[in-house]
Design a protein around this nucleic acid. Sequence first.
DNA 1: GGTATAGTAAACCACATGGTTTTAGATCGA
DNA 2: TCGATCTAAAACCATGTGGTTTACTATACC
Lengths: 119, 119
Amino acid sequence: MVLDRSPRLDVVFHALAHPARRAIIRQLSGGECNLSELAAPLKMTFPAATKHVRVLEHARLVRRRVAGRQHFCRLEAAPLKEAMLWTESFRQSWEARFEALDSLLDEMSSEEPSRARRR
Amino acid sequence: MVLDRSPRLDVVFHALAHPARRAIIRQLSGGECNLSELAAPLKMTFPAATKHVRVLEHARLVRRRVAGRQHFCRLEAAPLKEAMLWTESFRQSWEARFEALDSLLDEMSSEEPSRARRR
DNA sequence: GGTATAGTAAACCACATGGTTTTAGATCGA
DNA sequence: TCGATCTAAAACCATGTGGTTTACTATACC
């Protein structure tokens, strides 16, 4: 059972609530990147971008590996899974309204992984 | 395809990032409630609680129906579905790390709806 | 009509968030 | 060693968030 009163869910959902952080997650889903690579596509200064990475780390959605002067980041799926479980816990009571979800997910699953990427 | 740069995802994830608002959603998953019923279990003043309801309305997660002096609220599944679709868009690239999710979801689906409620 | 009830609105407060600029430190390569 | 590169850290600022108290409006009930 996933509890509503969960500080972890607080920070995970908050981390997902900013487009720049979702873009970072999207980019990291293609593989490890260092901070400069992550900051480059974002329309903000480097310090601002690294602050967003810190928020993602705090939510344990991103893990950092230091190699010399470069800091490589990679995704961590577990917290996202926890967030999905919370959402999924309503499936029973919302079954009728969720009826179209399964077919949509099936569509996406049948797509090529590369087609599922954006930009 | 679900875009990272989506104001709707911003407000939906932000709405989900507070335990009081998740508790409201949880309560509404059991059926329509008026504002007093929603505010009662929350450890805050009534105006604070109704502000949270407004945030949920702004995210279109909650719809309001006015009947006399009472305002009844009910859940709206669509935005939550959109949030789940964004998360699901990583399933392909994270397949290995998501491997345990399906079985967990199956477990939950086999539970009674009433057992899936909390508190 | 008068009173209790359901909810709104506004003013206010402390603190968090998201951004900037500037300064500084560590490491790599020539 | 020296300069370029990668990142951190700090100070600062505007705005947003989450909460309160107080005052008000509108509806229901006796």
